[in-house]
Amino acid sequence: MSITIIKPGFMCSVQDLGRWGYQEFGIPISGAMDIGAAIMANRICGNEDNEALLECTLHGTEILLNETTIFSVTGGGSIVTVNDEPITFNKQIKAVGNSTIKLHPHPIGCRSYIAFSGGLNVKKVLGSYSTYTSAMIGGQNGKNLEAGDLIEVKKISSDHKKENITITASGFGSSNWKAIAPALPHVNDIVKIRCYEGPDWNLFDESSKAALFNTRFTIGKNSNRMGFQLEGTKLNRKEEKELISSAVTKGIIQVTNQGIPIILMADAQTIGGYPRIARVFNDDINLLAQCRPGMKIQFTSI
């Protein structure tokens, strides 16, 4: 079994739950931005949590199923059709060969996860399927997916739970059950993100500490899998001081010398030297992954 990428859309890459154990060599964890949605997509298909799946940012992605395929879509950021008929997220779906999955614009969420029963058959690099483009490792030759890429889907093992799905005239059918997913933010929402004071909280002046929680920030255009750059009040330190670099990871809110906060995300560097004013509560990192540039966030203390 295999799938062909007709159009990658904004961005589409193979991910899993991350590349652990290599940070001492400077290799970021990577993996799905919304870990919760990735796990759910795999579970719906009867896969292990850590199977390779697709992470699609916003819309535009088109995928051809070369044979009858069982898959699921979770997360958000798009309306998904199979053979031009809308499907429901968080259900197991079975579609006949030659079916096309398309991701259309939608104002809710930002990243969708498409898991295929059996999992995508890509090579594990340093213990993970995750694509990390900066070092060209993992996924499909270390790159984001491109039009024409063909990816094999692994055979479903015999103990895989089988669903009775009736395929309709449109070439697909879906499970009569649906997994319960967390609510996703609308582009016009002001998204509340809970955070703790960070390791370098006390280096910031009082008005900057207050501004972090009392003002709203906009997710900037310079936001990607590595980090979200925030537009809003500049955050200043009490005094200029070069910090000694130490480990950083996703959820850390670091502030550049220009006073710009950056929330580190899945492809965050392993070590950083900017002061860390705060860190996002773990459970809200998945919610952040579903926010797109231009959206407003409000930090709340925990």
Binding site: G21, Q23, I244, S245, S246, T270
Partner: peptide
């Protein structure tokens, strides 16, 4: 899971 050494700290 893992230990990450930096100049003067271990995470």
């Amino acid at each position: 899971i893992e230990c990450v050494p930096a100049y003067s700290s271990l995470t």
